[in-house]
């Protein structure tokens, strides 16, 4: 089982968490001004990274907070975890 570092609780077992998809996707401020393609891209288009991926997680069965994680999708190695609202730490390409 993975240990996931929650920025509030420290290292906790993976089954306490739920995955929240790719992080840092800003909702368009005025959605009705977007055409269908742009809106579709916002809703569905996601990076398919091979390497460090910035993603949202929720410590569902713990402090219940959303936070962000940088995870290497090839190895599941967790590179960084940081609170929502704080900038992503610099991650060197591996």
């Amino acid at each position: 089982m993975l240990l996931i570092p929650c920025p509030y609780c420290g290292n906790r077992p993976e089954i306490e968490f739920s995955y929240g998809g790719q992080a840092h996707i800003a909702r368009p401020p005025v959605p009705e001004e977007l055409d269908d393609d742009a809106w579709g891209a916002f809703l569905y288009a996601r990076d398919n990274v091979r390497g460090p991926h910035r993603e949202r997680w929720r410590h569902l069965h713990g402090c219940a907070r959303f936070f962000n994680l940088v995870r290497d999708t090839r190895t599941d190695r967790i590179i960084a975890s940081y609170r929502v609202g704080t900038p992503c730490p610099r991650v060197e390409p591996l």
Partner: peptide
């Protein structure tokens, strides 16, 4: 104290 899981229950 901690909120966690026991088998399938919170």
């Amino acid at each position: 104290c901690a909120r966690t899981v026991f088998h399938k229950a919170e």
